[in-house]
Write a protein that binds this DNA or RNA. Sequence first.
RNA 1: GGCGGGGUAGCCAAGUGGUAAGGUCGCGGUCUGCAAAACCGCUAUUCGCGGGUUCGAUUCCCGCCCCCGCCUCCA
Length: 470
Amino acid sequence: MALGFFNTYSRALEEFSPRDPPNVSIYTCGPTVYSNAHIGNFRAYIFEDLLQRHLETRGFKVHRVMNITDVDDKTIRGAREAKISLTDFTEPFKRRFFEDLETLRIKPANEYPGATEPRYLARMIEMIAELIKSDLAYQAEDKSVYFRINKFPNYGKLAHLNLEELRPTGRVRSDEYEKENIGDFALWKAWDEADGEVAWDSPWGRGRPGWHIECSAMATTLLGDQLDIHCGGVDNIFPHHEAEIAQSEGVTGKKFVRYWMHCAHLLVDNQKMSKSLGNFYTLRDVIAKGYSGREVRYALLRVHYRAPLNFTFEGMEESRQALARINKWLERLRETSGSASPEEQRAPVPNNDFQQALDDDLNISGALGVLFESIRETNRAMDANELGPAAAKAWLQWWDGINQVLALDAAETLALPPEIEALAEARRLARLAKNWQKSDELRKDLNARGWEVRDTKDGQKITRRVGPEP
RNA sequence: GGCGGGGUAGCCAAGUGGUAAGGUCGCGGUCUGCAAAACCGCUAUUCGCGGGUUCGAUUCCCGCCCCCGCCUCCA
């Protein structure tokens, strides 16, 4: 079928067509910068990266916005505990978040609006005023402003929840009895002592914005009243995205989002990550165990976004080996493409199957299946000496195309360090003299130093052993 | 209790109304002085369980079981 995605709103696979082709607007919920982001967060961001990259290979021009939540209960508490200003507290986490995105080869969004930026605060206040005017919001006795969900008939449609059957979970703050309805959510939170210095003026008194209004304001400011795609983790469906719809449509009167896409959770050892279970990992934790950003990217990318992904270090090893296979294949293709063999006898056979698999709701497993089948096929042809330079070049071009989406190209081969070069030369001489014992010792030595030795008909080849890139 | 997602080989994971992609691991082989890499072969008579529809179901329908998540500020 043509390009299609599973829309959370309709619970169905829908053919994709943006409002204003070839332009596509995407809004993705970004991090709250109160700590380093964990690998579960990055699973979502990698899914969004895959989405963007695939849309781009299909000729769309993507405009993507990712917000940064730099004010909420957790950031305020963190700043207070550290006895520094809110900005001083969030800034390092923000910086590290961007570093992590780069480590994972995630394409930068076009904009990263922050909730505390004046232009968005102004827009939030404007929207809240609008909602009050149309009776969709009210100021309660505690001075906070709440959205009146009973006045918005579509509230609950995205999550398919029956509001009468909501079960209180104890996470409802006890002081929220001021609300007309338990489901009403805060648009503007009146200042209280725990907020310390953190407050902005508004027509309803000093306070700070609620979490949900932040996204509605930034999304409509930067992308207009109607978005093509809005993504996030499944846990954002309710209440966050439900609230976004209510607020945005309450103000604009237009359908807010055409395609809602949500990715399933990451599990670690089959359980939700939690610090008490000791299975909580930030990206930095995994990198510190010796894995590269590329390896983590592959591990988080290889499972379909709507299926739960179980993260294990066994899975990291698998990823490492699979990538090593790709590396060696590419290396071999490059050598073949550069060789001076006679002209091609056979037309190259690259195909679009990879992209077609992704057209089907980003079926990455199917797409990777195409890649690995092609790898085996071409390796077989190279073994049989049936694949010449022109075909090798064609396959490398094919790889460039799919790598626009995967972003899994290997680092350039490095020059050997002098001591490795010396060992390699010693081994070459030993082999020339058929001194196998010495040759094997030197190979062992090279292995121990992190280098792999392969003897081919063109002499020995020394490469980095699989593992983190230097 | 309500609403979702998932249950396919040791592990990870596609898929179709007609008889199971791919990755990884393991074993055997080709190649090699030996290896490594690559390639070849083997590894699910079977797709959570029980019914039903059908010439035929893992795929459609019904019932059930298990895992995970959401149910008011977690991606």
